[in-house]
Simulated scan of single mutants.
Amino acid sequence: MRTVALVLTGLIGALVAGPGQPDYENEAESWTPAPSCASGLSKVDSASDEFDEPLDGRWRVYDVANGDRSAELAYLPEMVEVSGGVLRLYVRADDPDDGVNGYPAGAVESTFDVIGASPGQASCVEVRTKGFAANVARPGTWDQNVFSAVWLHDRPSRYELNPNPEIDIQEFIQTDQVYSALHTWELDSADDETPTRTDPDRCHTGKPDTSPVGEGIDDCHSASLGLGDLTASQHTYGLRREIAVIDGEAAGLLTVYVDGIATWTRQFPADSPFVTDDRHVILSTQGNPPGDPGPPFPKVALHAWVRTYA
């Protein structure tokens, strides 16, 4: 296990500044993830939502009329519903007579930012979700082509925001596993409309980690979570970002949690946009070609709340 020291508020500032930085050699200890995503942090109400009121200007509801699609899915505002303290995102059956080219579906993106980590200040976002998965029959069987997802990104990608990092906290690829992934979407110029995607890393719980090995900590939870079918009830999915001192150097860390279990910790340089960038939270239904969603309909993802901490 790597020897590291957790950042103490104020000390990391000295490290970044250079002169007068403290000697960490005798302060190192075995690093372990925080016991929960929000450990030691306070809720940021302006970047949180309990979905106990209708959606307001803090959310953008995706609409195919504005070009919002995901493969066979055509996003429509009427596929988004808030009632009883729950945000519901639907996928309906395709109707060739409804004038929509694709399966009507729902997705929303926050207009508020989930803040990134800074020296001496970690951040966390948690989403309470009951999703639907791509393999509804049994593990390894793909009998439909849609799933729900919780992720951080700003859409559309913009040249001035290169590399436009995307953090997929949870994609419901399989019913009993957490699938997390990292992507970037880079544009060659301000006039470029087709970003180039890269896939720095991923973690799929319950399976051997075959992703590229990153530098430093890349701890993917490859054992079974023991939580059963994650689509049968609501669970809490979280992402914590922080800056720590590892082997005497500042480093950025992101850790994914489900119900307080740390499923993946990934190390980056301290100034990595994956760690430091503010990002919108996106709650969506997703479609990936080829193939159609398959019955039964409607499919629905339930979101009880979004809570940001810093």
Rank of each mutant, 00 (worst) to 15 (best):
S30N: 09
V256M: 13
D199S: 15
N164Y: 11
D143Q: 05
W151L: 12
F274M: 07
T32E: 13
P119V: 06
I217W: 07
L11S: 13
S70F: 01
I282E: 02
R2C: 02
G84I: 10
P200L: 07
S70G: 01
A28K: 11
G20E: 03
A223Q: 14
V281G: 02
P269D: 15
Q267V: 05
G226M: 10
G252Y: 12
G10F: 04
G252L: 05
N288K: 14
T9W: 08
I246F: 02
C220V: 06
T255Q: 03
R279L: 14
F147W: 15
T236H: 02
A14R: 15
T276W: 03
L55G: 05
S39R: 02
R92D: 15
N135K: 08
T231E: 07
Y159A: 10
E215I: 10
S42E: 14
T263N: 02
G18P: 00
E249Q: 15
A250L: 09
P22A: 12
R197F: 08
D199F: 13
P195T: 05
D154T: 15
Q21G: 13
G85R: 11
P54S: 06
P22V: 06
D113W: 12
S272W: 09
S148C: 00
V91Y: 00
Y90K: 07
R69L: 07
P269E: 14
G84K: 11
Q21T: 08
V80F: 01
L87F: 06
D292C: 00
L283W: 09
F274V: 10
E215F: 07
D49Y: 11
V146W: 08
R307E: 13
H204A: 13
A105V: 02
A190I: 13
E72N: 12
Y90N: 09
V4I: 11
A74H: 08
D97K: 13
L41R: 06
G102N: 05
A134V: 02
L15P: 01
T175C: 06
G260K: 00
T210Q: 08
T175Q: 12
L225V: 13
E186H: 05
V80H: 06
G238S: 01
D23R: 10
V281M: 04
G116P: 01
T9E: 14
D97L: 14
A5P: 00
G85Y: 11
T265Y: 06
T285D: 00
H235I: 03
D143A: 06
F274K: 02
G248F: 04
T263S: 01
A310G: 10
D168S: 05
W59L: 09
P139I: 05
R279N: 03
L161S: 13
Q177R: 15
I261T: 06
L87A: 07
V150N: 07
G40C: 08
G120H: 05
A47I: 04
D56Q: 12
